[in-house]
């Protein structure tokens, strides 16, 4: 790892100010992706601004069907939240399968979303839930937030402070883990809302990162049933291809995971 200056911010404002003074700074929360990247000398920020100790970025609020999760909330906290489980168990289940138990104790929802790893789990849920990504400057709809591999709508120095969404009537996430890394090779989050509409977020498989699958959404909106997906095609041209599976295989996985998610959502 290259040398770096570590700063611990105690407020969002302080974090923003520290970042503005840094030459080439990066925010760090759990650090579960950033620190391995720095260890491999693939990232060399001049400064790290730690967001884990900012009280206003922590915690979970559920008011009626509205769920708000502080960006510095860990995967373990989301997985174990009885409040969220009451209204949106799918997101708890997703969080409980990110990484491993030790990673879940450190990794945060904000970090995962800001990094937008094409194989990360949360982006699929954010897309499917139609979540709002709240920053220190604005609120960004998930559809507008994720912009391809490791790219987001975040501007320099912008900090995700929380995410919020209205709990769907039904939702579930099904993940097919890469046999080596255990990241998603195909992860599909399906959500059905009280107006009968369905949103489907797909991670891990797309060559351009997380995406929504319109064909599946239409099919499931008209018939909320795993079988409704039989006739839907997944475009192989959009799929990643690597040593772990070619595009045809990934396209198959997307469909199978979608069907399993629908079945799990009930």
């Amino acid at each position: 790892m290259y040398d770096v200056n570590y700063h611990r911010a105690s407020s969002v404002e302080e974090a923003a100010s520290l970042m503005s003074r840094a030459e080439d700074g990066k925010f760090v929360a759990g650090g579960q992706t950033l620190i391995p990247t720095m260890k491999q000398r693939l990232a060399a920020p001049s400064d790290l601004i730690d967001l884990r100790h900012i009280a206003s970025m922590k915690g979970i609020r559920v008011e009626g069907g509205k769920v708000t999760i502080g960006a510095a909330t860990t995967h373990a906290e989301v997985a174990g939240s009885a409040d969220i489980a009451r209204v949106c168990p799918g997101i708890c289940s997703l969080a409980s399968h990110i990484g491993d138990p030790a990673v879940r104790h450190m990794g945060t929802i904000g970090g995962s979303i800001a990094n937008n790893d094409p194989a990360a789990d949360y982006p699929a849920a954010m897309m499917a839930l139609g979540a709002d990504i709240v920053t220190n400057k604005r609120t960004i709809a998930a559809d507008d937030f994720f912009a391809g591999l490791f790219e987001t709508a975040l501007e320099d120095g912008e900090i995700i402070t929380s995410v919020s969404f209205s709990a769907p009537v039904k939702c579930a996430y099904a993940k097919f883990a890469n046999p080596a890394s255990r990241y998603a090779m195909a992860g599909v989050f399906v959500a059905r809302f009280d107006d009968g509409s369905v949103r489907v977020g797909v991670t891990g498989a797309g060559s351009d990162g997380v995406f929504r699958h319109k064909g599946m959404e239409d099919a499931l909106t008209s018939d909320w049933n795993a079988g409704a997906l039989d006739g839907v095609s997944v475009d192989e041209g959009m799929m990643l291809s690597d040593i772990h599976g070619d595009a045809a295989y990934r396209a198959n996985l997307v469909k199978v995971m979608a069907k399993r998610a629908v079945a799990a959502a009930g």
């Binding site: 570590y6 760090v28 650090g31 030790a102 104790h105 450190m106």
Partner: peptide, 19 residues
Amino acid sequence: CVVHVDGKAIKSCTTLAAQ
């Protein structure tokens, strides 16, 4: 590298001492 920090298992090779 797993150790416990404040009672929770974490990976000490993926955590800065300063954190």
